[in-house]
Design a binder for these strands. Sequence first.
DNA 1: CCTTATACCTTGCGTGAATAGGTATACGCC
DNA 2: GGCGTATACCTATTCACGCAAGGTATAAGG
Lengths: 110, 110
Amino acid sequence: MEIRLVSGTVEMLVMEVLSAGASYGYQIGQTVLERSQSLFELKEGSLYPALHKLEREGVLESYWTEHDGRRRKYYRLTANGLKDLERRRAEWQALARGVNGVLGLSGSAS
Amino acid sequence: MEIRLVSGTVEMLVMEVLSAGASYGYQIGQTVLERSQSLFELKEGSLYPALHKLEREGVLESYWTEHDGRRRKYYRLTANGLKDLERRRAEWQALARGVNGVLGLSGSAS
DNA sequence: CCTTATACCTTGCGTGAATAGGTATACGCC
DNA sequence: GGCGTATACCTATTCACGCAAGGTATAAGG
């Protein structure tokens, strides 16, 4: 089952991964794949635009490093970003609760 | 918190409501509001286009009635629609599980 | 030199949610 | 009879977003 992500989740997932510590694009994608137990994948076409947007909005900040001759662009959450993440988590949970309420799923399945 | 629905959920919610029995547009909206405990609202601008699309696709069929001098367009799921609903529920649950996995929420919160 | 993996990236497209506004009818109140 | 609210159906347009497709760059192994 190749699940397409839904609007608004890409940014939240990125921010969530970064709340555990700075990371770089490629690795963020890997982390999301792992933590979702391969249920979905953060595609590059969504990932990099999201990183750039969040940086523009002051939610993330970045810096370049070099590792084994390759460039790596690390990102980390700003203080604003942490707050924003809390808001998005709450919003996701409320949405999920509402959707599950309509579907007749509660507390358990999901 | 005025929650915006995410892509793909409108149709699923509509189909879910209809899986319990035929209903008409306005009432479907009310049912979603109730069952989501007012966490969100199915806006008409999303609801009616979704009903029409699902009908075009053979997922729903409709018929008109009149009640107290007003027209009511009832919809019901087709056999195909029931199958499609099962697929969408599974997809939603997998998405939610994956997202919650990344967020570090499991079985409980959501 | 080729292939694969790791790394970053961008444009254009398709899709979907919802705003804003529309028509129509019933009912209660003034 | 007119006004306001609720019930009922509806649509054009806008905006936002996910991602396919394709790009550049470097390392490692065969």
